[in-house]
């Protein structure tokens, strides 16, 4: 296998390359296909990284806060709020708990009801903001204790609506990885088709080589080398163009923006470097398989 490895192939003699006549059109198609696939792979990769970051951010930011909502008759609200705060102070995993004052609640409601909301006239529930410590608290245990101390208190630890969001982000990330796999498989399939057409078009060349005593591996190498180099060149160009396109996407400042977050950060850019060799490797094995299969059919 060592004689047929990809690095050995790149060093291989040019004479073996010349025994197969140059085929302009198939060559250009192979380069173009590899380039287009690499370009698409760049975006699939960017999508996977972006959704991965989004999922991480959502789980981290939302996991650190929770809210207790207290709905009680007018007279009991203050008492229940005090009870809730007392419970929270003795709950392990709660770093801080604070009842929101009227102005803060008004600010929260303003976007929905306008600035002239008569807050006094409405039975607005009291909100208590909880900041978790790093280890977090036991939500079920806290819920039971709150129920006992303040029947009108409801703990909302955000898990309920955080989980589907994170799940969706993870699913999109899986789809991105699946897209990369499909792109790799399609590249191999297209190179196989191109190699088969080249092998069929060069039947006479292959016959002459067999007649003068060339072994199958020599003949296969001439084709394999050619298609591997084409895929490498095409994928390099495609990756480069894809990277430039990603870099040129206008940056918006909204941290939660999904589409504007599409791209690579820091070391993530280095992952692009595996695309050209991956395409070359796919082409290498696809052509090798096609070459040996079609050579075995000949005398």
């Amino acid at each position: 296998m060592s004689r047929h490895s990809v690095p050995a192939l790149l060093r291989a003699n040019s004479q073996a390359d010349r025994v197969v006549p140059p085929s302009g059109f198939t060559a250009r198609l192979t380069v173009f296909s590899a380039g287009a696939m690499a370009f698409l792979a760049v975006f699939a990769m960017a999508l996977s990284f972006a959704t991965g970051r989004l999922a991480d951010r959502w789980s981290q930011e939302l996991a650190r806060t929770a809210t207790v909502r207290i709905s009680a008759p007018e007279g009991q609200l203050a008492a229940q709020t005090a009870a809730v705060l007392a419970v929270l102070e003795t709950t392990p995993g709660v770093a801080a708990a604070r009842a929101l004052d009227e102005a803060e609640e008004r600010a929260l409601l303003e976007p929905w009801f306008g600035p002239d909301l008569p807050l006094d006239a409405l039975p607005i529930p009291q909100l208590v903001e909880i900041i978790e410590s790093a280890e977090g608290f036991d939500a079920e245990g806290l819920r039971l204790r709150l129920q006992a101390e303040a029947p009108g208190a409801v703990l909302d630890d955000h898990t309920r609506w955080r989980e589907p969001l994170v799940g969706a982000a993870e699913r999109i990330r899986m789809l991105g990885l699946l897209a990369i796999t499909l792109i790799a498989a399609t590249t191999a399939a297209m190179v196989s088709l191109a190699a088969n057409s080249a092998l069929a078009a060069n039947g006479q060349v292959i016959r002459v080589l067999r007649l003068v005593g060339a072994r199958d591996s020599y003949i296969a190498r001439a084709f394999v080398r050619r298609f591997t180099l084409r895929a490498l060149a095409g994928a390099t160009a495609g990756t480069l163009l894809g990277a430039i396109a990603i870099a040129l996407i206008p940056k918006a400042q909204t941290a939660d923006g999904f589409l504007t977050g599409l791209g690579f950060q820091g070391a993530e850019w280095l992952w692009l470097l595996i695309l050209p060799p991956a395409a070359a490797t796919a082409a290498f094995f696809a052509t090798r398989l096609a070459a040996f299969r079609s050579l075995r059919k000949l005398s």
Binding site: R18, P21, P22, V208, L209, L211, V212, G213, A214, Y218
Partner: peptide, 20 residues
């Protein structure tokens, strides 16, 4: 049975080339 795209010298030397 020559390779028409290669000059005569290379065609004649083809068995040597294929045998390394």
């Amino acid at each position: 049975q020559f390779l028409d795209h290669l000059p005569i010298a290379e065609n004649v030397a083809l068995p040597l080339a294929t045998a390394g």
